[in-house]
Amino acid sequence: MDRSCYKKGYPMSTNRTFQYLKGVTTLRFSRELCISCRRCIEVCPHAVFGIRNGIVILQDRDACMECGACAKNCPTSAIQVRAGVGCAYAVLASKWFRTPGWFKKRSQTDSCCVSADELSNKSPCCGGGGCCGS
């Protein structure tokens, strides 16, 4: 990545610029259950968690993309989140359209990439590098 832009505060490469809607995430963090093992800091791709005075804190809640990595790897279940993929196409395909039979097997969850299995060489969505392309 071009970090020179970062220093100048140019909007192209700072993660803050790419923050999505505020106050919508389902992420819940329990300070009481947390043992500060730092696994969540290790797995979060958006630096949602941080360290202050040796204990783990929720430092940037609105940056959460609900990938579910933190909750899945938390040894004490101190973190909870409804994990899913933020893909409008997948939501349309799986929830709001009536699913035809041939499609059913391919769209059992929200994730677009979920549908790309051996049944077909065609993914229903996903141009994605964020998602299926990378």
């Binding site: 790419f18 958006h46 609900e66 899913g84 933020g86 196409y89 677009c112 994605g128 590098g129 998602c131």
Partner: peptide, 20 residues
Amino acid sequence: ALNFTGSTPFTSLSGVLQEM
């Protein structure tokens, strides 16, 4: 543009549902 949410590495399911 809404369709492009699936290609980005930062949009959340809750956000997409809210927007949709």
